[in-house]
Each structure stands twice: as C-alpha cells, then as structure tokens.
C-alpha cells in the first residue's frame, strides 16, 4: 500500500500541478486595486459631479430642486446673484454654497433627475473612504468639475484614479 503511494506520488504531483498550470493560462480575475481599477458602468451612481459649460461657467443656478428632491436631505444649497465683476454662472443666479453629506447620501440619483440644468450628475467615483466623518461633507470645490479644456461634460474627472481601466471580462 505504502509502496504504491510512493511510486504513484509523482503522478499525483503532476496532476495537481497540471491544475495549477491550467489556471496559469486562464484570464486573471483579481484586480490589483487601487493601482488598477475596474471600469464602472456608464450610469454608475457614485460621488456627484457639478458640471461646467465649455466656457468654464458653472451650470448650477442654486435652485435647490436637488435639495428638495433628496429623500434624505443631505444637500444644502445657498444661492447668490451674479455680478459683472463676479460671474459664476451664465444667468442671474448661482450656488454660493453647495454641500452634500456623502455619508448620509443614499446614492439614489434623484438630485440628478430633479436638476433642470443637468448641473449635477452622479459620477463614477465610489472610493470614498476617509478617516473622519467631517471629511465626508463634500463642498462645492470637491464636487465641481476641474477647470480644464480637456474635460468634456461626461468624462470622468481627472481626480478619479482610473486612467487605465483593466480591459478584461469577468
């Protein structure tokens, strides 16, 4: 008995290794997060983005419809009037203060639906961990698209760490 197992041992090893080597040739499932990141669906509801027009002016007019549509009340908006010296948005009114409590937010996307100017959309970012609750109050500067010519309305903001999504099937 023992002798037979000794003699067949290399065979068992070879069979086991065959399984190992077989998987070596198959596509890799694991993603090396955070260096590499999975592409999110185009309609992903991640951290919100406040958009700008092509000329850099903000789309948000501070109408607070997002705030009233929000089922958890996590949005605070205060409006102010544009002046020729201080023009933030094209019309008469802009959002002086725009804050979202990202911990309270349930990422339902109602704000996006309520917005009459497509100023707020849900973005692709989901990596929102941090070390203090206060850091989850996203102020206007955190949410605004950066002022950059290469950014179109729908692109992922350059702040998101996924320049090279892994192009691979599950």
């Amino acid at each position: 008995m023992a002798l037979k197992e000794v003699l067949l041992g290399p065979l068992y090893i070879a069979r086991a290794l065959a399984t190992t080597f077989k998987h070596n040739t198959k596509p890799i499932v694991t993603i090396e997060y955070p260096e590499r990141q999975k592409a999110v669906p185009p309609r992903e509801r991640g951290k919100h983005i406040l958009h700008r027009y092509a000329d850099g002016l903000e789309k948000c007019v501070g109408c607070e419809l997002c705030a009233i549509a929000c089922p958890v009340g996590c949005i605070v908006v205060e409006a102010a009037e544009n002046t020729p010296e201080h023009r933030v948005s094209p019309g008469e009114r802009y959002a002086k203060r725009y804050e979202i409590n990202l911990l309270r937010c349930i990422y339902c996307g109602f704000c996006e639906e309520a917005c009459p100017y497509d100023a707020i959309t849900m973005g692709p970012r989901y990596d929102l961990a941090d070390d203090h609750p206060d850091k989850f109050i996203a102020v206007k500067e955190d949410l605004l698209e950066p002022l950059s010519a290469s950014i179109s309305d729908t692109a992922i903001p350059s702040g998101a760490p996924s320049a090279q999504p892994v192009a691979r099937k599950w």
């Binding site: 007019v61 501070g62 109408c63 019309g91 008469e92 009114r93 009459p116 100017y117």
Partner: peptide
C-alpha cells in the same frame, strides 16, 4: 418659465 431661478418659484 425660469422657475428654478425665480424667487416666487
């Protein structure tokens, strides 16, 4: 119909 920026809205 600029209700979003109108104070009466």
């Amino acid at each position: 119909l600029d209700c979003p920026i109108c104070d009466k809205g």
